[in-house]
Design a protein around this nucleic acid. Structure first.
Length: 814
RNA sequence: GCUGGAGUGGCGGAAUUGGCAGACGCACUGGACUCAAAAUCCAGCGCCCUUCACUGGGCAUGAGGGUUCGACUCCCUCCUCCAGCACCA
């Protein structure tokens, strides 16, 4: 029975118990209803739900409920990204076991999620720190190893002193750690495991085009930039004296006759060979700790020369701090006349400037007059047989020439690097590899998976993997020769865990495989993925890479896992992102205690369109509480009347109420189907509520029942507890999710009369109420006859009449 | 520097296709109810001018220009803010 007071703290737990007892959110399988997979990014179990989570899950939950009511079978799962540093740091700080800490956080967060009433099917819950899950990380690692997609190499890697571990390139932000703003990332040489993401660089880039319908432009652009494909030419310069070649990559081979020196990256192997290894190291370290803006271009001459294969010109070999080892070939040709950075470097160090490109409408610059490089395309000069060509033609011909002569070729370079997955930390998936003196690097056989993460490890946070000290773990027999060997002690980046988890949801208890392909194919691709934009180039590239690998392993037969992606905005308060550090957080728990979850959900959807940042204002939450109370009171007054719902108008006001109802159905449905501007959906439901309040006593019983049932169902995806309560009171049945989404009736929604605006010379002068659909000439005739218009038009000549039926008449008059 | 997004009342925001700018909500003001308060209900609420009042008029969507009968919306120039990328050769 609906009470007259809105009491969320009574009804919310009641209906949560009811949903759980009835198994309302269990995923429906084996029906022929169309599928819909709605997924929210899984949280790290920090133990505290914050407003960002609530916003994310409220959007997903509204969509899941809407689709359910529209007749889809919906997969709406939730899990835990439960490996990672905070657990380990808590262990170091408070001496707590990471496993216990994580599990109790999960229990707490799950309780919070349940108290919000999100419609998750907890039967597919997964937690990445459990062996049942992470054994499949290891399984994927072995498959990638077999295909050469997982490999080990010594490399300069990003080292965060605060995390005491290595970071992937994607985890370095402005030269600092993504978790430790202000902690500069250092470069260290280490043996590391990598996943060969670059093997799919072209495909990852090209497939972005297919995603353009369902993914935000912002994310597509970010990924495009991150992959950073650029086309150019690779050219060998021969080192004088020892016949070695230095290969450079350039996008402007047309300028190569103007190359006046070569510049090597400080960590280029030749720098060491020339005897400047230490100096190069020092330079690399100094450069890595500064942002590009503050870095003066510095360098030194190696005393060696190389020969330009096109011109035969002998050029000095320098080392420069602005040349990056990890891009292109780690060496560049400097063309100071046509590249601004080279210009600055060469001017500073007294290296020749030789212009070879002139503007198509001008003359070749004189080196002494140049104040900056001329970087645009133009006409090639002083370049032997290529002189006189325009840049584009020269680039093509010169690349061909390099290839024909054998000193180079056209080439494509990517900014994307292979994904470094080694972490020198405890709380992650053990890498399933063994190092044997005899056999080298040997994979752990499938039959021996999972390689269990040992317990009772002493955690110090010193920088070496804590697992190195666990002798039972490290000392193993070589799987190949049986002799004593050492287990790999690095663990995997936790982004490995989240790269494929959404497949596991479809078959979460499978102990024979990561998932069953046939089962997954019943749900994939993910119809709608929802999460924060901060994962645009981390998770969202890694998971695309994983899907491509899985496809090549024959596990799936599609290319992309996520059909549509939605990135929600941040929650802001006092102009800043809500964060514990800034002390401006609103805890969802507080909100729950004060208003209940429906109010919190409604507000987080109403305050801003979901893709924009949400400005949190405490007073506005109060307004949402008032609205729900209003709905509750309205429905309570008409529940239990025994009246049947009827869409037949009998009283004069009935027609208007039904019209408003169907106009609202139209708007809310449209918002779900296209724009996702739930703030306007809720606004229109408020309008409907206001209208019903205003007409309440003038409506027939049948029509008011009809309108209320419509109202409650429209509100259902946003405020599930209150509407469940009201739906039971109105209809005597439930759950509301089994009720169908209200059907829009265009006839009922149609206005009989419309207000038409009358303008003179584009200025609003009068309004007119006319029957809808009134033809053009009749409309302007009526408009002309009104008192105001006829007065204003008197003595003027009407040159033109613009008529938009049902909207406006504009007299152009003088 | 490059790329993407945004700029509308005191505030969050609306205007879906070039057609009434400010829906809906917050805050505020006034009224009703009440012994009183809370809650609730009703009304008002961009700026300026005009009128005792009814009213009437002008201005206004970051700035300036353009296209159009008509521009928050399209085009050009510029400013500010947010985000991402960046000696990427």
């Amino acid at each position: 029975m609906a009470g007259t007071r809105y009491r969320p703290h009574e009804i919310e737990p009641k209906w949560q118990r009811y949903w759980q007892a009835k198994g309302v959110y269990r995923t429906e399988t084996g029906s022929d209803r169309p599928k819909y997979y709605v997924l929210e990014m899984l949280p790290y179990p920090s133990g505290v739900l914050h407003m960002g989570h609530v916003r994310n899950y409220t959007i997903g939950d509204a969509l899941a409920r809407y689709k359910r009511m529209c007749g889809f079978r919906v997969l709406h799962p939730m899990g835990w990204d439960s490996f990672g540093l905070p657990a380990e740091n808590a262990a170091i700080k408070h001496g707590q076991d990471p496993r216990d800490w994580t599990r109790s956080n999960i229990a707490e967060m799950k309780r919070q999620l349940r108290s919000f009433g999100f419609s998750y099917d907890w039967d597919c819950e997964l937690s990445s720190c459990e062996p049942e899950y992470y054994r499949w990380n290891q399984w994927f690692f072995l498959r990638m190893w077999e295909r050469g997609l997982a490999y080990r190499k010594k490399a300069a890697v990003n080292w965060c002193p605060a995390c005491a571990t290595v970071l992937a390139n994607e985890q370095v932000v402005d030269g600092c750690c993504w978790r430790h703003e202000g902690t500069a990332v250092e470069q260290q040489e280490r043996d590391q495991w990598f996943f060969k993401t670059t093997a799919y660089a072209d495909e990852l880039l090209n497939a972005l085009e297919d995603l353009s319908d369902g993914w935000p432009d912002r994310v597509l652009t970010m990924q495009r930039n991150w992959i950073g494909r650029s086309t150019g030419t690779e050219v060998d310069f021969t080192v004088e004296g020892d016949g070695d070649a230095i290969r450079v990559f350039t996008t402007r081979v047309d300028t190569i006759f103007g190359a006046t020196c070569l510049i090597l990256a400080p960590l280029h192997p030749l720098v060491d060979r020339f005897g400047f290894g230490d100096r190069g190291q020092a330079m690399a370290t100094a450069a890595a700790t500064k942002s590009p803006d503050d870095l003066e271009k510095e360098g030194f001459f190696t005393g060696r020369y190389a020969v330009n294969p096109y011109s035969g010109r002998k050029v000095p070999i320098w080392v420069g701090n602005f040349v990056v080892m990890t891009y292109g070939t780690g060496a560049i040709m400097a063309v100071p006349a046509h590249d601004q950075r080279d210009f600055e470097f060469c001017s500073k160090h007294g290296i020749d400037i030789v212009p070879v490109i002139r503007p198509s409408d001008g003359a070749l610059a004189r080196p002494d007059d140049m104040e900056e490089a001329f970087c645009r395309y133009g006409i090639v000069e002083d370049s032997g047989e290529f002189s006189g060509m325009d840049s584009a033609a020269a680039i093509a011909r010169m690349s061909d020439h390099a290839e024909a002569t054998g000193f180079g070729n056209a080439a494509v370079t990517f900014r994307l690097r292979d994904w470094g997955v080694s972490r020198q930390r405890y709380w992650g998936t053990p890498i399933p590899m063994v190092h044997c003196q005899e056999c080298g690097v040997v994979p752990v056989p499938d039959a021996d998976l999972p390689v269990l993460l040992p317990t009772n490890v002493s955690l110090t946070g010193t920088g070496e993997s804590p697992l190195r000290e666990v002798h039972d773990f490290v000392q193993v027999d070589c799987p190949e020769c049986g002799r004593p060997a050492e287990r790999e002690s690095d663990t995997m980046d936790t982004f490995v865990d989240s790269s494929w988890y959404f497949y596991r949801y479809t078959d979460a208890r499978n102990s024979l495989a990561p998932f069953d392909s046939a089962t997954a194919s019943k749900w994939f691709p993910i119809d709608q993925y929802i999460g924060g934009v901060e994962h645009a180039v981390l998770h969202l590239i890694y998971c695309r890479f994983f899907s491509k690998v899985m496809r090549d392993l024959g596990l799936i037969d599609w290319d992309e896992p996520v059909q549509r992606l939605f990135t929600q905005g941040m929650v802001i308060r006092d102009g800043r992102k809500m964060s514990k550090n800034l002390g401006n957080v609103v805890s969802p728990e507080e909100l729950l205690d004060k208003y209940g979850s429906d109010t919190a959900r409604m507000f987080s959807l109403f305050a801003a369109p979901p893709d924009r940042d949400l400005d949190w204002q405490d007073e506005s939450v109060e307004g949402m509480w008032r609205f729900l109370s209003r709905v509750n009171r309205l429905v309570a007054r008409h529940a239990d009347t025994g009246a049947e719902a009827s869409a037949q108008p009998t009283l004069p006001a009935d027609r208007a109420a039904l019209r408003k109802l169907h106009q609202t159905i139209d708007r809310v449905t449209a918002d779900f189907e296209s724009r996702w501007h739930f703030n306007t959906s809720i606004a229109s439901i408020m309008e409907l509520t206001n209208e019903l309040y205003a007409r309440e006593n003038a409506l027939s019983n049948g029509v008011i029942q009809e309108c209320l049932r419509g109202l409650v169902r429209l509100l259902g995806p946003f405020a599930p507890h209150l509407t469940e309560e009201l739906w039971h009171a109105l209809s005597g049945t439930g759950p509301l999710l089994d009720a169908s989404w209200p059907k829009y009736d265009a006839d009922l929604a149609r206005d009989d009369n419309v207000q038409v605006v009358v303008q003179i010379n584009g200025k609003l002068r009068d309004r007119l109420t006319v029957p809808k659909g009134l033809p053009k000439d009749q409309l302007s005739e009526l408009a002309r006859q009104t008192d105001r218009i006829s007065t204003l038009l008197a003595g003027k000549t009407v040159h033109r009449v613009i008529e938009i039926p049902d909207r406006l008449v504009n007299f152009v008059a003088r």
